[in-house]
Each structure stands twice: as structure tokens, then as C-alpha cells.
Design a binder for these strands. Structure first.
Lengths: 254, 254
DNA sequence: CGCAAGGTTGACGCTGCTCAAATTTGGTGG
DNA sequence: CCACCAAATTTGAGCAGCGTCAACCTTGCG
């Protein structure tokens, strides 16, 4: 159930049996949330910390024009608002994409963990920093790449993030997003997303059926989109990359 | 000198005399850095924490295409990499725009502060969260608004951020950015930035001369760009806004 | 005074948006 | 199992925002 979280944290930091136990206690009860439902809205004071155990959610804002801008996709193992609780009020909304299992963690439980479990604390920090790095990369994506590379980049990122929590196999992963969701996060129109996905399919890069996405040749899709995984800061993945992508070694050596 | 930082922190959290003293000791020596100079590059392991005392800098990445994407502007009082030091290596570069005064703060000094000064620690957290909120808003900006609103929004944000650290008066602030800098952060071409700034000037919204920007009517520019300051989480500013923008009260009350 | 960097302008084309309609998919009740 | 409906996807046509290329002008500095 909350394997996703533990799996993710362990890809950042080695955890003890005690740490595991503390994490299990952290989730007292699990809540089922339907698809397309808000977990928390802009303007509300943040109270509990939300953790996605199952399903997909997103961070978003509604512009004065009515346009929705999605700023992050949240997958199993992701905290929605690990840190926001320090602030006075939410400056954005969080809503589900698919049906989700969500844990509402009281702030006190987080405090308790950070007081007594330094490894978990460090892993939590790591999570927060990676979330921010992903956000930066999205800005790079939307600001600097054109539609086809942009969407391809997103698909690569989702693959790696879902692999890290065990939700992808054979380069295939669940894909509950509507094309309108992709449009609203990539700053594109729905119609153009449709044409672009069509293009990626026609190029033989991906297949999308029964709400599951398959990437036929990951390296090819990465090359197509200019994807570099360094911003995800995955400890496991990094080693294999060092072996397979020689120029990264140079960059790291300098 | 480091008034900017103290000023900023105090807009988030009340600090004691002891806190002030601790912050002064935090900056052992100040370094002068020329314009257009990198403070730290992608791939390097982060060591010291950099604090901008004077001048403007930016976070950026270079895409495979050679395109530069700026992800944040750093103004006096901003930390460049308060948290990044937990991660293994930088996933982006930080470079100056204008000449800067920079403090290199050893990681240990930060640890010491956070161990002994809870109010400062809380204010540091607040800084980090606001930085992330700004990043989210930039994504909204680039993804959801068109060129003229996008640039106008940036100008509003810079005004408020610089006012908060005492670098703006009479709605005028230093503007050392080249049009190419604006282009690279807003995901636009240099030529289109030029035309858009021209448009804002023609509309009588701004004046730009001698590297200083003046906003003639702040409320008008905010309305033009769809700017809402809530994401900056400025404690001082919030109250005045509650008075002047009735619908915010409703949103907060719900 | 002269040069280089940055700002400005024009012409033209492409990427991606809008509007609108057709088709497919998935869920529901008979 | 089929008919039906709403939601989502797909397709087409026309157009606008913004990019590209290239030249010219202005500003600041040595």
C-alpha cells in the first residue's frame, strides 16, 4: 500500500527497520477519493499533510481567464504539501486525476518523525528538493521546447518517476490523463495535444491504449525530447546512467 | 548591507536582537562578483550556500539546442541554494546579471543557526517555500498567459519583491536585465520581447530609462497582467490587500 | 571619436490556437 | 447483448501570435 513511499524514500536514503515501522504508523487511516475531486483549494489554510498512496493527482491554479494551469502531477508516494503547512494559506489547488487513495497525516506526526528519525527527515528533505527540481524542469520544458519534445519529455519523466515507485513495467504505465490535462500542464491547446500525440504515435515512439502508455524505445524518446534524468536525483538510476552515457561522466568530472 | 536579508526575514517572522546578531555573524566575508559571471554550474557538487547581498542574479539551464532558460531571478536578500546542498549535484547553473555582492556561507554556519535559532529557521523555511511558490507562478505565467500579460506580470512581481527588501521607491526599481534575459525567462524571442515592452510603454503602463523601470499605475498593471500577490506570502502586504481587494476576503473566509 | 553591445524595426513564415463538426469510446439501462 | 448517451478523441479549415532573419539605429564606454 504505502510501499510506494518507502520505495521512493529508500531510493534516496537507507532506512532501518525502525524507520519502516515509523512510516507505517504515519498512515493511520486511508481515505478513498473519487476522480476529479479537490483535496484542498486555493485560499484554504493547510492543515494535514496529504500523501498519495494510489492513483494520480495534480497541483493547479485557475487563471482569471478561466484557464487551468497544472503545475505538477502527483503519483503514488508523493506528498502533496509536505512543506506548505508553514505558510498561511494555499496559493494553489490540489485535485485528483484518477480515483486515489490518500493518507491525511496530521502535522504533529510529521513533527514527531523529524524529531526522532534523522534518516527519514533527510529523505523527506530530498523529496521536497526533487519536487522543486521537477518544477524547474517543467518551466524549462514549457519555456524552451516545442510541443512534440515537450510532451515526449513529460512521458519520459513519468516513466522514471513511476518506475521508482514500482508502477511501471515493460516501459508501460497507467495513463489516466485526459488530453485536456496534458494541454493544461504543457501550456498547449487540447487540439494541438491531440495532433502531437498522434505524431509521437506515428513516429512509432509510443502506444496509448486502454489508458496505458507504452514507450517503445526509451532511449529514442529521451533523445527526441532532450531528456536528461539528472534533475530527478535518483540514486539508483544514476549509476546505470554513468555507465551508459559517457558524456555525463565528463560533466560530473569537471 | 545584509539589511535586505534581515528585512525580508522580518516580513515573515519577528526576530530578536540575538537573531539579528546571529545573522550578522553568518556573513563572514563578502565577495564582489562581476556581471554575467557564474556562481555555480550544473553538475558541480554544492558546497557553500550563496546569498545575494547586492545586485541581480538568475538560475538557468542550457538546453541541448543551446537555448538558455532562466528559472528564477535572484534579488538582494535571496539565497541561491539554501537547500540544494542536500542533493548530490547541481541540476542547474546560477549566474549574475549585474555586478553582485555575494556572501558564501559554509553549510556548518547554516546548521548552527538552525540548531539554535528557531525563529530564523522558520523564516528560512518560509523563504524556501516562497521561492517555490514563485517558481510555480512562473510556470503559470509561461504556460497560461500571452506575451504582454506575461511580461507585465514579471514586472509586478519584481516590484513587490524589491519593495520588500527596500530596493524600490516611487514604483521605480533598478532594471539591469537585457531584453534577451527577459526573453530567456519568459520563453519568448528577443524580438518579441522588444515589441511587447514597446507595447507596454505605448499603453502608458511603464517607463524604462537609464536601467530603471517605473510603473506608472501599479493597480492598472496588476489588472492588465492578472497579477495576484498571494503567492508571495508577504505578511505585511497581505493586510493592505485585504482592505483593497474585497473578493480576497471572501476567498479567505471560505 | 569610434567601436561594440544592445535596442529597434520590417518582412515573412511557421507553430500552435480557435471554432466547429464528426467519430470513437465507455458507461448505463433495457 | 444491444441501444443509447455523454464524454473524450479526432479531424479540418482558417487565422493569429510569435519566431526567424536581417538590417539599421542608439547608447555607453574607452
Amino acid at each position: 500500500m504505502q510501499d510506494a513511499l518507502i520505495r521512493k524514500l529508500e531510493s534516496y536514503e537507507a532506512l532501518s527497520k525502525q524507520d519502516h515501522e515509523a512510516l507505517r504508523v504515519l498512515v493511520p487511516k486511508i481515505r478513498q477519493v473519487g476522480p476529479r475531486t479537490d483535496l484542498i483549494s486555493e485560499g484554504e489554510p493547510p492543515e494535514n499533510v496529504h500523501l498519495i498512496l494510489e492513483g494520480f493527482a495534480c497541483r493547479y491554479k485557475i487563471l482569471p481567464s478561466g484557464q487551468r494551469q497544472i503545475m505538477a502531477f502527483l503519483v503514488p508516494g508523493d506528498f502533496c504539501d509536505l512543506n506548505v503547512f508553514i505558510l498561511d494559506q494555499m496559493d494553489h489547488c490540489i485535485g485528483t486525476i484518477s480515483a486515489c487513495q490518500v493518507a491525511d497525516i496530521p502535522r504533529r506526526a510529521i513533527d514527531e518523525i523529524t524529531a526522532n528519525h534523522p534518516h527519514i527527515t533527510r529523505a523527506f528533505w530530498w523529496c521536497a528538493l526533487v519536487d522543486e527540481a521537477v518544477l524547474r524542469e517543467w518551466l524549462v520544458n514549457v519555456g524552451g521546447r516545442q510541443a512534440n519534445q515537450r510532451i515526449a519529455h513529460l512521458l519520459c519523466e513519468l516513466l522514471l518517476r513511476l518506475q521508482a515507485v514500482g508502477y511501471a513495467s515493460d516501459n508501460t504505465y497507467p495513463f489516466p490523463f485526459k488530453q485536456a490535462d496534458i494541454a493544461d500542464c504543457m501550456g498547449l491547446s487540447e487540439v494541438h495535444v491531440n495532433r502531437t500525440i498522434r505524431e509521437l504515435r506515428a513516429l512509432g515512439l509510443i502506444t496509448l491504449k486502454q489508458r496505458h502508455l507504452t514507450i517503445h524505445n526509451v532511449e529514442e524518446l529521451k533523445a527526441f525530447s532532450g531528456f536528461t534524468a539528472n534533475y530527478l536525483h535518483l540514486k539508483n538510476a544514476r549509476w546505470s546512467e554513468r555507465r551508459s552515457v559517457p558524456w555525463l561522466v565528463r560533466a560530473q568530472g569537471s
